[in-house]
């Protein structure tokens, strides 16, 4: 992102789930590169701590699964950054923990997973679409796209037993991304989904506590790959199989 990290035209990015795992790694990496970063998380104390550690970032306390929070979050994002070039919908819910077979999953747990992994990103993206399309429209470098990056999972493609609520909600998010991408391309906004791979994150530990972390990808590595994909799409690179077909990274 060399072209955008100078003082005059820093990239403006919002990341949900920004205080742990991949979200935090994205906040750190983008902050290091000089981007203007706003991040969202539910826990006020962790938000404050992250802002203290990364001065200049903007921490927003909110829960994307809550209908009433979406516009409040959007307001604070665009207020803090003065606009928005990239939204990363990263915050995710596993559904019931420990993981449970679908037939043993309560409807409420499925709804919770859908609220966080599907409806929340939909609502927040809608609330920020005006800002994203304005960024694309007003970009002085002709053809620069605004980007929505939805974090997917290979559980969206492969039917892993026990991953029903999570897998189904991520599958829906990915298909939503594909359709939205078709619809919004004429307005200069790309909607991508990408599988970051199995990472050593709190979410993974919650799902599979017995996995040896050494066998997992570091979230910092995944963050760099996500950023590279965002930058390629911003510059108008055709979005290939790796971006759209989850599971191939």
């Amino acid at each position: 992102m060399n072209t955008e990290t100078n003082q005059h035209d820093p990239l403006r990015v919002a990341i949900t789930g920004g205080t742990s795992g991949l979200g935090l790694a994205l906040v750190e990496a983008l902050h290091r590169r000089g981007a203007q970063v706003a991040f969202v998380a539910r826990d006020a104390e962790r938000v404050t701590r992250t802002v203290r550690r990364l001065p200049g970032t903007h921490g927003i306390v909110g829960d994307i699964a809550r209908k009433d929070d979406a516009h409040r979050i959007a307001l604070q994002v665009t207020a803090a950054l003065g606009g928005l070039d990239v939204l990363v919908n990263n915050a995710s819910s596993l559904g019931p923990v420990p993981l449970r077979a679908l037939a043993d999953t309560d409807c409420e747990d499925l709804e919770t997973a859908l609220a966080t992994n599907l409806v929340g990103p939909f609502r927040l993206t809608k609330a920020l679409l005006g800002a994203l399309s304005a960024a694309a429209r007003n970009s002085l470098q002709s053809g620069r796209r605004a980007i929505v990056m939805n974090i997917g999972s290979d559980a969206a493609l492969t039917p892993y037993a026990g991953w029903g609520a999570y897998g189904a909600s991520k599958a829906a998010l990915i298909h939503l991304s594909r359709i939205w991408d078709e619809e919004l391309q004429p307005h200069g906004v790309r909607v991508l989904a990408r599988d970051p791979g199995d990472m050593d994150t709190p979410l993974h530990a919650l799902a599979l506590p017995d996995t040896d972390p050494a066998t997992l990808k570091r979230p910092q590595q995944a963050a760099l790959e996500i950023i590279a994909a965002i930058e390629a799409a911003r510059n108008g690179a055709p979005v290939g199989a790796t971006d759209q077909q989850i599971g191939i990274t």
């Binding site: 516009h71 307001l75 665009t78 928005l84 609330a127 005006g130 800002a131 399309s133």
Partner: peptide
């Protein structure tokens, strides 16, 4: 964001939410 409500007038009785008053292209608040 937390405490404010959209300004509204007596001709609309029900409390307005932000999504009622943001246009489709709404960007900076």
């Amino acid at each position: 964001a937390a405490h404010g409500r959209p300004i509204q007038y007596a001709h609309v009785a029900e409390p307005l939410a932000l999504w009622d008053v943001w246009t489709a292209v709404a960007a900076r608040p």
